[in-house]
Design a protein around this nucleic acid. Structure first.
Lengths: 119, 119
DNA sequence: CCAACAGGTATAAATAGTATACCTGAAATA
DNA sequence: TATTTCAGGTATACTATTTATACCTGTTGG
């Protein structure tokens, strides 16, 4: 059942079958469109990064936000968390294949933002 | 001044020049990544749509949200609002060129969501 | 007349994000 | 030795955004 629109003689359009649950765009946005999520993924593109480094790279997001987003992404299998050292504790985060699969979209978004000088 | 990361002998990475303001990804996300914004733009891809039809197409977003998002997009020059009739009032919203320029990203996002079955 | 639709607005409640401070343990600095 | 700094977070309180619900003015259809 696809939602569609019909047009009357006045150029007015009417919906025929509205999608009653979030469509693919909305579902996708809720993953990579959360505040700071896209940036987070993008900053992991070149390999593992440590927690506090992500915090600095995103300058503006709080640790709590970084932490929360990383946990969400980990739970979705987009990011892998690895403890590389106890004493002193050291943790890295890196993209999984699924995480990498979102990079093209983010790269296009970056180019779009720059091209149209989005502020 | 580009932010970059240096690696030490343990595979740990350190940030060299953190970007202190939202980077392009983040700026872009704040436009098309707002809740319902992407869907809204996407549903305008085939031409003008009326307010209440958008409301139905997005089933789940409230009129207030639709209204607010449309005003944001209008203010950014991504959407054009046209009163096509007084008595009875009729209004349509359509994408401007700038609005259209975001469609490719949204289409890729839709394909990504579907391919990886994002819920 | 009455209900339904158009395009919204008002109010309150729930959810999301921010600012700030703090914790444990190790190591570098004074 | 004492203090500060860093690691990787957590706790608390506050602000902003989003949601749910109801309502408004005016027009049309039954």
């Amino acid at each position: 059942m696809k939602s569609r629109i019909e047009t009357d003689g006045y150029g007015r359009k009417k919906v025929i079958d509205a999608c009653m649950e979030p469509c693919a765009i909305e579902r996708g946005m809720r993953i990579i469109g959360g505040k700071w999520t896209g940036s987070l993924i993008y900053h992991l593109k070149d390999g593992p990064v440590r927690f506090n480094d992500l915090n600095r790279l995103l300058g503006g997001a709080t640790k709590k936000m970084i932490d929360q987003r990383l946990k969400e992404l980990e739970a979705r299998g987009m990011v892998l968390r690895t403890v590389i050292n106890d004493r002193p504790i050291a943790v890295t985060y890196e993209l999984t294949e699924l995480g990498r699969s979102a990079l093209d979209i983010l790269e296009d978004l970056r180019l779009w933002s720059e091209k149209y000088d989005i502020r």
